[in-house]
């Protein structure tokens, strides 16, 4: 059975429906990336999966006994809260020091055990978050824009680390990213989300899908245009959203680079 299966999920905040008719399944060992513009419900989907948001309709089924490792988008530690990397790693499970050390090595940051969390660089911090998520040997890793605040080489290295982790531990990965050009090579499957599932498939398929282009423009990677595919996805009229924000988004994208 799938590790996570989501069926016809609907999530609402007040009168605002952020997700509707979302269905997807995560199989053991695969890396799935969710892409989508701001406000497309990516984070809400992840929040629903971990139980932080209650579905208005639809179902989320986790395989019984599923162990989830969660890497939050941004973790703000108040300056008044002193905490070492070691203590942070043991936040929910009182694991031995050797286990912490091993998880830090897997995440690519050995030797940080005694440092204060507040003294870490952005890249080190994200890797410690990753190490903490890996500590109880999860079946699936959930990452919510885990490379926010990292520069491009930094996030490329981070995603390479994710691939290595998957290779070494065999855990599935479900991650949110806005940097498709960076995560492309690492993903087995990409789901393009904009309130609903716009299109999904192999990265090269999604990258050249008209729905994806409409959302992100073509500027995100000239190299992707080389891919050819048969796109059999049709966009129902009933979904009721337009892609008028594509321009604004691609501008924002350029500004970010």
């Amino acid at each position: 059975m799938s590790l996570i299966s989501v069926e016809n999920l609907q999530v609402r905040y007040g009168a605002n429906t952020v997700l509707r008719n979302v269905s997807l399944a995560i199989e053991p060992g695969e890396i799935v990336t969710i892409v989508g513009p701001n406000g497309s419900g990516k984070t809400s989907l992840l929040r629903a999966i971990i139980g932080a948001a209650t579905p208005a309709a639809g179902q989320i089924a986790l395989r019984p006994g599923l162990k989830i490792g969660y890497v939050p988008q941004k973790l703000h530690i108040d300056p008044t809260l002193p905490i070492t990397v070691e203590r942070f790693m043991q936040l929910t499970d009182r694991v031995p020091r050797a286990t912490c050390q091993a998880a830090l090595e897997t995440a690519g940051v050995p030797g940080l055990l005694k440092r204060q969390m507040s003294q870490l660089s952005g890249g080190q911090f994200q890797r410690v978050l990753l190490a903490r998520a890996l500590i109880n040997h999860p079946d699936v890793l959930l990452l919510d824009e885990a490379t926010q605040g990292l520069d491009q080489p930094g996030s490329a290295a981070f995603y390479q680390q994710i691939e290595t982790v998957r290779r070494d531990t065999g855990c599935a990965v479900l991650m949110i990213s806005h940097e498709l050009h960076v995560v492309m090579s690492a993903s087995d499957r990409v789901i393009c989300l904009n309130g609903h599932v716009c299109c999904e498939g192999a990265p090269e398929v999604v990258a050249s899908a008209p729905e994806y282009r409409a959302l992100f423009g073509t500027g995100t990677g000239g190299a992707l245009a080389l891919y050819r595919h048969d796109h059999d996805h049709t966009h129902g009229d009933g979904c009721g959203h337009d892609h008028a924000h594509a321009d604004a988004h691609s501008k924002e994208h350029e500004a970010a680079e």
Binding site: L46, R47, I50, G51, A52, I68, G69, Y70, P72, Q73, L75, H76, I77, L81, F88, L91, T92, L142, D144
Partner: peptide
């Protein structure tokens, strides 16, 4: 532990079953 996890990050707490 639960209080500390919730203080650090709500989502982290939810993902840990708290």
């Amino acid at each position: 532990s639960a209080l500390l996890t919730s203080t650090l990050n709500e989502e982290l707490a939810y993902a840990s079953g708290l």
